[in-house]
Write a protein that binds this DNA or RNA. Structure first.
Lengths: 248, 248
DNA sequence: AAGTGGTCTAGACCACTGG
DNA sequence: CAGTGGTCTAGACCACTTA
């Protein structure tokens, strides 16, 4: 009982097979949580080699439709693909695309537990030991771009001289030197008016529109690596991003 | 002259081979732009089958280190992997996360070539036929969230009633009904003060801080699908995003 | 026309899962 | 223990690029 694959389009067999299986899954035949036929069974059903079957299943796995477990089988985990866009970053701190030589000039540093008000603003639990750096971001001698507060988990924080040198890609340094890569970033962007306290070090006027970004960096286990909060006077900064649809 | 692969770690051969090649590329032996040895040559050099070689090269291609072209060879396109974060979206218009029932209420519509000033603001060429919708975004009867200008390529634009109904996920509709999926989105976010013209329909005050987002939607061939420009009064909107490190 | 990567077959052994 | 997916071999033909 061999099933014919649609060969009209001239597509390779493994693509035709992937499409046939995708259609079956979308139709709910193997419903979410159920098992797909085994590779061997698919070989027989569609009259193709195991390599071809595996190539087709690889496509479905890459689209996130199925999950495969040696010994257990191939289970359906979704019945349709979601749009899925990627943002490529040279490093985590490309999130904010400062000029390459825009450094963080610390105005004050402190180590201690996370303040209650700060924790609330970030929506995280207070306490824990954090290395806090408050500073101005920009090229030395020029009008600053931003005011930044960074809270770095104390046990993995770099020495302050390192922060000044590297111009702010702290999480890259932590991944490299401490072996704790960032797995997840949560970012909030909003607009607000500059307060007087903020306006002075930025050489700007209070009430001026500003872009505020708040970011939380987490490791694989969900532990906080760092928190950052920046204020950019409106006319000095635009946040540009490119999102690409992931190949499916 | 077979080269031994590092088998100490117990890793599969194709992974060991991929790691060996990655190290060579990182060392600059095949520099960026240069060709890797052919599959056949790699089989001989490392004493493995072609399938194993291809599996290793697939890993490198997925990491973005190499690009492969039938007939031409395998070229090095990068010497180290970049961090690579993904943003998952249920649909393209999740970019701006409005409440599900926040609809676009058109105030005016027009079809015609792209105005010179508008084209400059978006950084694209003027001309072409576009369907322009200007409207207010929000729940009917409540304080509006945003002011939006959308320019949709006229040949694939939906009827205006459809836009009102669906609450703004125009590009999803175009992908589904016109068969033109969005492949690339460019987004710029900045802060600025509300102008008087903008303040009135938003029930806000001129000079208030606002978040401005400008987006360009492109299809696979680089043709513009749509352009959008929105202004959100500062206190009414925060743009939240989550970025996940991609498994490599 | 020669050589590249893309597809495909027919085998094989293995590590792992489940009953 | 039988059966799964993971890895691997040794072939083959094809579409495409380059010269």
């Amino acid at each position: 009982m061999t099933v014919m694959l649609d060969n009209a389009s001239g597509a390779p067999r493994y693509m035709a097979l992937a499409e046939a299986l995708r259609a079956r899954i979308a139709g709910g035949d193997p419903a979410i949580g159920e098992l797909l036929p085994t590779e061997h069974a698919l070989c027989e059903t569609y009259g193709v080699s195991r390599h071809t079957v595996r190539e087709a299943l690889r496509l479905l796995a890459e689209s996130g439709l199925i999950a495969r477990r040696r010994g257990a089988g191939t289970v359906v985990v979704a019945n349709q693909t979601h749009d899925h866009f990627t943002q490529r970053l040279g490093g985590v701190d490309d999130l904010m695309q400062y000029a390459r030589d825009a450094k963080l000039l610390p105005r004050s540093t402190r180590t201690g537990p996370l303040d209650g008000a700060v924790a609330r603003a970030f929506g995280v639990a207070a306490g824990g030991e954090f290395f806090h750096v408050f500073g101005v971001r920009g090229r030395p001698g020029e009008t600053p771009i931003a005011l930044t507060d960074v809270y770095i988990r104390a046990d993995i924080a770099p020495p302050v001289e390192t922060i000044v040198e590297m111009g702010g890609s702290v999480t890259d340094w932590i991944a490299r030197e401490r072996g704790v890569p960032t797995a997840r970033i949560e970012q909030s962007i909003s607009a607000g008016a500059l307060t007087e306290r903020e306006a002075e070090p930025l050489n700007a006027e209070a009430g001026e529109a500003a872009l505020r970004t708040r970011r939380r960096y987490y490791d694989k286990g969900g532990r906080i690596i760092a928190l950052s909060d920046s204020v950019h006077p409106g006319e000095r900064f635009t946040y540009d991003m490119v999102l690409l649809r992931e190949a499916e």
